[in-house]
Protein backbone atom coordinates (compact mmCIF):
# COMPACT_ATOMS: atom_id res chain seq x y z
CA UNK A 1 0.00 0.00 0.00
CA UNK A 2 1.20 3.48 -0.87
CA UNK A 3 2.19 5.50 2.19
CA UNK A 4 -0.17 8.42 1.54
CA UNK A 5 -3.17 6.08 1.22
CA UNK A 6 -2.13 4.22 4.33
CA UNK A 7 -2.02 7.49 6.28
CA UNK A 8 -5.40 8.67 4.91
CA UNK A 9 -7.16 5.38 5.69
CA UNK A 10 -5.58 5.26 9.14
CA UNK A 11 -6.66 8.85 9.83
CA UNK A 12 -10.27 8.15 8.81
CA UNK A 13 -10.47 4.90 10.83
CA UNK A 14 -9.02 6.67 13.87
CA UNK A 15 -11.56 9.50 13.48
CA UNK A 16 -14.31 6.88 13.54
CA UNK A 17 -12.80 5.27 16.64
CA UNK A 18 -12.55 8.64 18.41
CA UNK A 19 -16.14 9.50 17.49
CA UNK A 20 -17.52 6.20 18.77
CA UNK A 21 -15.33 6.41 21.85
CA UNK A 22 -16.69 9.84 22.76
CA UNK A 23 -20.32 8.94 22.07
CA UNK A 24 -20.16 5.68 24.03
CA UNK A 25 -18.11 7.13 26.88
CA UNK A 26 -15.50 4.38 26.58
CA UNK A 27 -12.84 6.55 24.95
CA UNK A 28 -11.22 6.00 21.56
CA UNK A 29 -8.12 4.28 22.93
CA UNK A 30 -9.83 1.01 23.62
CA UNK A 31 -10.43 0.23 19.92
CA UNK A 32 -7.20 1.68 18.50
CA UNK A 33 -5.00 -1.28 19.47
CA UNK A 34 -7.34 -3.95 18.02
CA UNK A 35 -7.86 -1.76 14.94
CA UNK A 36 -4.12 -1.43 14.32
CA UNK A 37 -3.16 -5.02 15.11
CA UNK A 38 -6.09 -6.84 13.48
CA UNK A 39 -6.96 -4.61 10.49
CA UNK A 40 -3.54 -3.08 9.75
CA UNK A 41 -1.23 -5.89 10.98
CA UNK A 42 0.78 -3.48 13.13
CA UNK A 43 3.03 -4.98 15.85
CA UNK A 44 1.36 -4.59 19.26
CA UNK A 45 4.22 -2.47 20.66
CA UNK A 46 3.77 0.17 17.95
CA UNK A 47 0.00 -0.13 18.42
CA UNK A 48 0.05 0.55 22.18
CA UNK A 49 2.48 3.45 21.57
CA UNK A 50 0.06 5.11 19.13
CA UNK A 51 -2.90 4.36 21.38
CA UNK A 52 -1.32 5.82 24.53
CA UNK A 53 -0.61 9.10 22.74
CA UNK A 54 -4.22 9.27 21.49
CA UNK A 55 -5.46 8.66 25.03
CA UNK A 56 -3.50 11.67 26.33
CA UNK A 57 -4.84 13.80 23.46
CA UNK A 58 -8.51 12.96 24.12
CA UNK A 59 -8.16 13.36 27.88
CA UNK A 60 -6.55 16.80 27.64
CA UNK A 61 -8.77 17.84 24.70
CA UNK A 62 -11.98 17.12 26.60
CA UNK A 63 -10.80 18.70 29.87
CA UNK A 64 -12.10 22.21 29.21
CA UNK A 65 -15.62 20.90 28.57
CA UNK A 66 -15.56 18.81 31.75
CA UNK A 67 -14.41 21.75 33.85
CA UNK A 68 -17.42 23.77 32.64
CA UNK A 69 -19.74 21.01 33.86
CA UNK A 70 -18.19 21.40 37.31
CA UNK A 71 -18.53 17.83 38.55
CA UNK A 72 -14.89 16.74 38.65
CA UNK A 73 -13.16 16.59 42.03
CA UNK A 74 -9.57 17.78 41.82
CA UNK A 75 -8.51 16.35 45.22
CA UNK A 76 -10.01 12.92 44.63
CA UNK A 77 -8.29 12.86 41.23
CA UNK A 78 -4.89 13.99 42.53
CA UNK A 79 -4.89 11.59 45.49
CA UNK A 80 -5.80 8.60 43.32
CA UNK A 81 -3.23 9.58 40.69
CA UNK A 82 -0.56 8.48 43.18
CA UNK A 83 -1.96 4.97 42.71
CA UNK A 84 -2.51 5.11 38.95
CA UNK A 85 0.94 6.53 38.13
CA UNK A 86 2.69 3.95 40.35
CA UNK A 87 0.62 1.23 38.64
CA UNK A 88 1.50 2.63 35.22
CA UNK A 89 5.24 2.40 36.01
CA UNK A 90 4.83 -1.34 36.63
CA UNK A 91 2.53 -1.88 33.63
CA UNK A 92 4.82 -0.08 31.18
CA UNK A 93 7.82 -2.01 32.50
CA UNK A 94 5.91 -5.28 31.94
CA UNK A 95 5.45 -4.48 28.22
CA UNK A 96 9.20 -4.84 27.80
CA UNK A 97 9.24 -8.25 29.55
CA UNK A 98 5.97 -10.04 28.78
CA UNK A 99 5.53 -11.94 25.47
CA UNK A 100 3.44 -10.17 22.79
CA UNK A 101 0.77 -12.90 22.83
CA UNK A 102 0.18 -12.47 26.58
CA UNK A 103 -0.41 -8.72 26.08
CA UNK A 104 -2.94 -9.62 23.37
CA UNK A 105 -4.85 -12.03 25.61
CA UNK A 106 -4.99 -9.58 28.55
CA UNK A 107 -6.12 -6.90 26.11
CA UNK A 108 -8.95 -9.11 24.87
CA UNK A 109 -10.13 -9.81 28.41
CA UNK A 110 -10.10 -6.10 29.28
CA UNK A 111 -12.15 -5.39 26.13
CA UNK A 112 -14.77 -7.94 27.18
CA UNK A 113 -14.91 -6.45 30.66
CA UNK A 114 -15.15 -2.86 29.34
CA UNK A 115 -18.09 -3.83 27.14
CA UNK A 116 -19.88 -5.37 30.13
CA UNK A 117 -19.09 -2.40 32.39
CA UNK A 118 -20.31 0.14 29.80
CA UNK A 119 -23.79 -1.41 29.76
CA UNK A 120 -24.17 -1.95 33.49
CA UNK A 121 -26.49 0.36 35.40
CA UNK A 122 -25.00 2.83 37.80
CA UNK A 123 -25.00 2.00 41.48
CA UNK A 124 -27.75 2.74 44.02
CA UNK A 125 -27.28 5.81 46.20
CA UNK A 126 -24.98 5.54 49.19
CA UNK A 127 -26.15 4.52 52.62
CA UNK A 128 -22.94 3.47 54.38
CA UNK A 129 -20.99 5.66 56.80
CA UNK A 130 -18.21 7.79 55.28
CA UNK A 131 -14.63 6.54 55.60
CA UNK A 132 -12.72 8.51 58.33
CA UNK A 133 -9.66 8.33 56.07
CA UNK A 134 -11.68 10.09 53.36
CA UNK A 135 -12.49 12.91 55.79
CA UNK A 136 -8.82 13.31 56.72
CA UNK A 137 -7.87 13.40 53.02
CA UNK A 138 -10.72 15.80 52.16
CA UNK A 139 -12.15 13.34 49.61
CA UNK A 140 -15.57 14.98 49.57
CA UNK A 141 -17.59 17.58 47.73
CA UNK A 142 -21.00 18.73 46.55
CA UNK A 143 -22.84 17.93 43.35
CA UNK A 144 -25.73 19.94 41.93
CA UNK A 145 -28.97 17.90 41.92
CA UNK A 146 -32.62 18.68 41.18
CA UNK A 147 -33.26 19.59 44.82
CA UNK A 148 -30.14 21.65 45.52
CA UNK A 149 -26.61 20.56 46.38
CA UNK A 150 -25.91 16.97 47.41
CA UNK A 151 -22.97 16.44 49.74
CA UNK A 152 -20.82 13.33 49.28
CA UNK A 153 -17.87 11.75 51.08
CA UNK A 154 -15.79 8.90 49.63
CA UNK A 155 -16.09 5.43 51.15
CA UNK A 156 -13.70 2.45 51.19
CA UNK A 157 -10.65 4.55 50.27
CA UNK A 158 -8.05 1.71 50.47
CA UNK A 159 -10.12 -0.47 48.10
CA UNK A 160 -10.50 2.41 45.65
CA UNK A 161 -6.77 3.12 45.87
CA UNK A 162 -5.93 -0.54 45.15
CA UNK A 163 -8.28 -0.67 42.16
CA UNK A 164 -6.72 2.53 40.85
CA UNK A 165 -3.29 0.92 41.04
CA UNK A 166 -4.72 -1.90 38.89
CA UNK A 167 -6.20 0.61 36.45
CA UNK A 168 -2.78 2.27 36.15
CA UNK A 169 -1.01 -1.05 35.59
CA UNK A 170 -3.47 -1.98 32.81
CA UNK A 171 -3.06 1.46 31.26
CA UNK A 172 0.72 1.03 31.19
CA UNK A 173 0.59 -2.54 29.91
CA UNK A 174 -2.00 -1.96 27.18
CA UNK A 175 -1.61 1.70 26.19
CA UNK A 176 -5.24 2.43 27.08
CA UNK A 177 -6.91 4.98 29.38
CA UNK A 178 -8.47 2.34 31.65
CA UNK A 179 -11.43 4.68 32.04
CA UNK A 180 -13.79 1.76 32.70
CA UNK A 181 -11.73 0.47 35.66
CA UNK A 182 -11.25 4.00 37.03
CA UNK A 183 -14.98 4.62 37.01
CA UNK A 184 -15.57 1.27 38.76
CA UNK A 185 -13.08 2.24 41.48
CA UNK A 186 -14.74 5.60 42.15
CA UNK A 187 -18.37 4.75 41.44
CA UNK A 188 -18.62 1.19 42.80
CA UNK A 189 -15.86 1.01 45.43
CA UNK A 190 -15.71 4.58 46.74
CA UNK A 191 -19.41 5.29 46.10
CA UNK A 192 -18.78 8.68 44.57
CA UNK A 193 -21.61 10.14 42.46
CA UNK A 194 -21.54 8.80 38.90
CA UNK A 195 -20.97 12.19 37.24
CA UNK A 196 -18.10 12.93 39.64
CA UNK A 197 -16.55 9.55 38.82
CA UNK A 198 -16.71 9.90 35.03
CA UNK A 199 -15.44 13.49 34.83
CA UNK A 200 -12.67 12.98 37.42
CA UNK A 201 -11.67 9.81 35.56
CA UNK A 202 -11.19 11.83 32.36
CA UNK A 203 -8.71 14.13 34.09
CA UNK A 204 -6.84 11.20 35.61
CA UNK A 205 -6.49 9.35 32.29
CA UNK A 206 -4.04 11.89 30.87
CA UNK A 207 -1.80 11.95 33.95
CA UNK A 208 -1.83 8.14 34.19
CA UNK A 209 -0.94 7.76 30.52
CA UNK A 210 1.86 10.31 30.83
CA UNK A 211 3.48 8.05 33.45
CA UNK A 212 3.90 5.30 30.82
CA UNK A 213 4.80 7.64 27.98
CA UNK A 214 8.46 8.09 28.95
CA UNK A 215 9.24 4.39 28.90
CA UNK A 216 7.26 3.90 25.67
CA UNK A 217 9.18 6.74 24.07
CA UNK A 218 12.62 5.52 25.15
CA UNK A 219 11.76 1.92 24.16
CA UNK A 220 10.89 3.03 20.62
CA UNK A 221 7.15 2.24 20.76
CA UNK A 222 6.23 5.62 19.29
CA UNK A 223 6.73 5.49 15.53
CA UNK A 224 6.14 9.13 14.48
CA UNK A 225 4.77 8.33 11.02
CA UNK A 226 2.27 5.84 12.49
CA UNK A 227 1.26 7.90 15.54
CA UNK A 228 0.66 11.06 13.48
CA UNK A 229 -2.57 10.02 11.64
CA UNK A 230 -3.84 8.00 14.63
CA UNK A 231 -3.45 10.79 17.19
CA UNK A 232 -4.88 13.48 14.89
CA UNK A 233 -7.78 11.23 13.88
CA UNK A 234 -8.76 10.16 17.40
CA UNK A 235 -8.54 13.77 18.62
CA UNK A 236 -10.72 15.06 15.74
CA UNK A 237 -13.23 12.25 16.21
CA UNK A 238 -13.53 12.73 19.97
CA UNK A 239 -13.96 16.50 19.66
CA UNK A 240 -16.74 16.03 17.08
CA UNK A 241 -18.26 13.33 19.27
CA UNK A 242 -18.37 15.46 22.40
CA UNK A 243 -20.10 18.25 20.41
CA UNK A 244 -22.72 15.83 19.09
CA UNK A 245 -23.25 14.27 22.47
CA UNK A 246 -24.42 17.24 24.56
CA UNK A 247 -27.14 15.45 26.53
CA UNK A 248 -28.54 12.99 24.03
CA UNK A 249 -29.58 9.51 25.19
CA UNK A 250 -27.20 7.08 23.56
CA UNK A 251 -28.39 3.72 24.82
CA UNK A 252 -28.63 2.09 21.35
CA UNK A 253 -25.23 3.39 20.35
CA UNK A 254 -23.75 2.05 23.57
CA UNK A 255 -25.12 -1.42 22.84
CA UNK A 256 -23.78 -1.35 19.26
CA UNK A 257 -20.37 -0.20 20.44
CA UNK A 258 -20.32 -2.81 23.21
CA UNK A 259 -21.01 -5.55 20.63
CA UNK A 260 -18.17 -4.26 18.43
CA UNK A 261 -15.86 -4.33 21.46
CA UNK A 262 -16.92 -7.87 22.38
CA UNK A 263 -16.14 -9.01 18.82
CA UNK A 264 -12.75 -7.29 18.91
CA UNK A 265 -12.00 -8.80 22.33
CA UNK A 266 -12.75 -12.33 21.16
CA UNK A 267 -10.73 -11.78 17.98
CA UNK A 268 -7.73 -10.52 19.99
CA UNK A 269 -7.84 -13.48 22.38
CA UNK A 270 -8.19 -16.07 19.58
CA UNK A 271 -5.56 -14.37 17.44
CA UNK A 272 -3.05 -14.13 20.30
CA UNK A 273 -3.74 -17.58 21.75
CA UNK A 274 -3.33 -19.33 18.37
CA UNK A 275 -0.14 -17.34 17.80
CA UNK A 276 1.32 -18.67 21.06
CA UNK A 277 2.13 -22.11 19.70
CA UNK A 278 3.84 -20.71 16.62
Amino acid sequence: MNELWFVVILFLSSTGAGLLGALSGLGGGVVIVPLLTIAFHVDIHYAIGASLVSVIATSSGAAAAYVREGFSNIRVGMFLEIATTLGALVGAWLTTKVPTQAIGVVFGLVLLYSAYASLKQKHAEMTEKPDPLALRLLLKGDVPADDGLHHYVAQRVPLGFGLMWMAGALSGLLGIGSGAVKVIAMDQAMRLPFKVSTTTSNFMIGVTAAASAGLYWRSGYMAPSLVMPVMLGVLAGSLIGSRLLVKAEVRTLKIVFALVIVALGIEMIVHSATGMGA
Binding site: N2, D43, P224, V227
Partner: peptide, 29 residues
Protein backbone atom coordinates in the same frame (compact mmCIF):
# COMPACT_ATOMS: atom_id res chain seq x y z
CA UNK B 1 0.83 19.74 19.97
CA UNK B 2 -1.66 18.77 17.23
CA UNK B 3 -0.53 21.71 15.07
CA UNK B 4 3.14 20.68 15.38
CA UNK B 5 2.31 17.02 14.62
CA UNK B 6 0.23 18.12 11.62
CA UNK B 7 3.06 20.30 10.29
CA UNK B 8 5.58 17.47 10.70
CA UNK B 9 3.15 15.03 9.12
CA UNK B 10 2.57 17.22 6.06
CA UNK B 11 6.33 17.57 5.59
CA UNK B 12 6.74 13.83 6.05
CA UNK B 13 4.14 13.00 3.38
CA UNK B 14 5.68 15.54 1.00
CA UNK B 15 9.02 13.74 1.27
CA UNK B 16 7.94 10.09 1.45
CA UNK B 17 6.06 8.47 -1.43
CA UNK B 18 7.23 4.89 -1.05
CA UNK B 19 5.33 1.86 0.28
CA UNK B 20 4.22 1.99 3.94
CA UNK B 21 7.04 1.40 6.41
CA UNK B 22 7.27 -2.00 8.09
CA UNK B 23 5.21 -1.77 11.24
CA UNK B 24 4.49 -5.52 11.28
CA UNK B 25 7.76 -6.33 12.99
CA UNK B 26 8.93 -4.40 16.00
CA UNK B 27 12.40 -2.95 15.61
CA UNK B 28 12.22 0.15 17.79
CA UNK B 29 12.98 3.63 16.57
Amino acid sequence: AAAVVLAGGALYLAQNHGPRPDYEHFHGE
